[in-house]
């Protein structure tokens, strides 16, 4: 694999993306690592960058990928364990409709409307298809 002729469109990265920590990406260098400045939040993608990527995907004609990236943007606020717990809650026969409804409301309250909508939709269909415990 090699670089080919000039790409048809310019690369799409925002001018200066920054990590979840707020650190600009160009500050991710060996000198700062040696100085002990870099932590795990410095190598995580930010909600803003994901939203920007979602816009790119939408413009390229893939609204579903855009929606997924926007949900991902919301999920940057969730801790790893919490994220895994929510995923588990959505698996078949793990949660009652009520539990899913509470989860959806909680997500909505915390500024994650897209994740909330996904969970609400799941609650509705899980009830109809018997996927609650």
């Amino acid at each position: 694999m090699r670089a080919r002729e000039a790409p048809h469109r310019a690369p799409v990265a925002p001018v200066k993306p920054h990590a979840l920590s707020g650190r600009p990406v160009e500050q991710l260098d060996l000198d700062r690592l040696r100085d002990g400045e870099l932590g795990t939040e410095d190598i995580r993608i930010s909600a803003e960058t994901l939203t920007h990527q979602a816009e790119q995907a939408e413009r390229a004609g893939n609204p579903q990928l855009a929606e997924s990236l926007r949900r991902g943007a919301e999920m940057t606020a969730l801790g790893d364990d919490e994220l895994m717990r929510m995923y588990d809650a959505l698996r078949p026969r793990r949660s009652t409709v009520e539990e899913l409804t509470v989860l959806a409301a909680d997500l909505a309250d915390r500024g994650m409307p897209r994740c909330a909508a996904l969970v609400r939709e799941a609650a509705e269909i899980y009830a109809r298809r018997g996927l609650t415990p």
Binding site: R71, G72, L90, A122
Partner: peptide, 16 residues
């Protein structure tokens, strides 16, 4: 042990 909704959640979790 998944539904389309749990998978959709997981897909976004990777993106996040």
């Amino acid at each position: 042990d998944d539904t389309p909704w749990s998978k959709a959640f997981l897909v976004s979790a990777y993106a996040s």
